[in-house]
Nucleic acid binder design. Structure first.
Lengths: 227, 227
DNA sequence: CAAGAATCTGACCAAATGGTCAGTGCATGT
DNA sequence: ACATGCACTGACCATTTGGTCAGATTCTTG
């Protein structure tokens, strides 16, 4: 029975915490506790999904009494939903608009780089999302068929324009998006496998080369060659 | 609190069951019960991971008393491990050997098609594996760093030969494998997302076109063009 | 048919689960 | 000094969890 010790999980928290420069100091006790709880919860939920996670374990990782989590978040479900919403908000902030006048190669390459950056900086968030979707997206149905669908539809329209102009391979535009999403998220979601099999990017240069490889391979595959 | 009713899960089981022609009738009561339990367990474990699944729910999906599962499999963990091993065995059976003399385009395309076929025929198995890896692969560590590593190493050697011969883009061979794995598995693991966003392949033709798109895009991106 | 083995299951158990609550501190403003 | 509201938490609760077990039923075989 392979058990993940709280210590190993906490190590992951600390690794992320020190790397996370975006969050301000958070002075008030409420903010301090909440962010501490959210960090721990992201760690545990990302690992075991909603149903597989326990408040006890989250409390241990956060080094706070269990009753404290419930004092601030009310219930396991509210904590989980809060975390999902926080993740989607942060992701949205790093996405840029595109227009039919842009050069497909540049846009696709930029998207690959942003996604890979997220996979590196916030792998837990990616795994949280993945676990939620694998379990049938019970809490994300509305988001998927609402905001995200709109976002995606806009990109599809642009891509159709590119295809009509002969600047992009003819295909179902969604499949192009899935090509980019899957290849980039893979490095966050399947990190455990990649660590065992090899090829895991470590240094900044590794990640840079990986981004170059994925971006140029997909671009060469998707964009008709110019003579 | 979005709950997945046992009925909805059972629908998934029935769908897979009728489509699963590979398993022989299974005459003895032991075989009959075991396969029935394994089907239900695959369904639940794939959805909620090891820790998020309960024997009670598996029993409900299998329409058998809980004590019966334990009679045949001894414990939740043994049932889970049995399922993992069965999955790996079946996957191994559908993988073919390759040699440096093969044409990279043909091999890559064949691999994409096999993987997409698995994603279509056994999406539960793919999600089961994904959930296990997301949670840190506690039960698969040995497999990943053993058999699978060897399998993967052999492919990497062949790909290095291809690269030396100028038949494949120069890159970390593992990244090529991840490119193929991620793009194909995505359609099983993230099916819930794809169903909501659109672009989900339905008919045989859809899947055929998807395979054509993924295979040709990756091949064009990975193999230097021949004049 | 008899004897044994295999199949099956309701009832039970200790531990863990999400959640409640009464009560303790402890700062502030008055 | 004291009142007020926030921050906190140990103790508790009903329910669910994985697992056991004694016994009932069915099947196989001499």
């Amino acid at each position: 029975m392979p058990a993940d010790s709280p210590s190993s999980l906490y190590a992951e928290v600390r690794r992320t915490r020190s790397a996370e420069l975006s969050v301000p100091p958070a002075s008030s006790p409420r903010e301090q506790a909440e962010s501490r709880i959210l960090e721990a919860a992201e760690c545990v939920f990302a690992c075991h999904g909603y149903r597989g996670s326990t408040l006890k374990q989250i409390a241990e990782v956060a080094e706070l009494p269990k009753a404290n989590l419930l004092y601030y978040f009310g219930s396991k479900e509210k904590l989980y939903v809060h975390l999902l919403e926080q993740t989607l908000t942060r992701w949205n902030a790093s996405l840029e608009d595109i227009s039919p006048d842009d050069e497909p190669r540049e846009v696709l390459e930029a998207l690959v780089r942003v996604k890979l950056k997220l996979a590196r900086q916030a792998p837990q968030a990616s795994r949280l999302f993945a676990a939620e979707v694998i379990s049938g997206a019970p809490f994300l149905r509305d988001y998927l068929s609402g905001d995200l669908r709109d976002w995606v539809q806009a990109r599809c329209d642009v891509m159709k324009a590119w295809m009509a102009a002969g600047k992009l391979r003819e295909a179902e535009p969604m499949w192009v998006i899935y090509l980019i999403w899957s290849t980039t998220q893979h490095y966050a979601d399947f990190a455990a496998q990649i660590d065992q099999l090899g090829g895991a990017p470590q240094s900044d240069e590794d990640w840079e080369q990986l981004a170059d490889f994925v971006a140029s391979t997909l671009c060469d595959g998707l964009c008709p060659r110019q003579p």
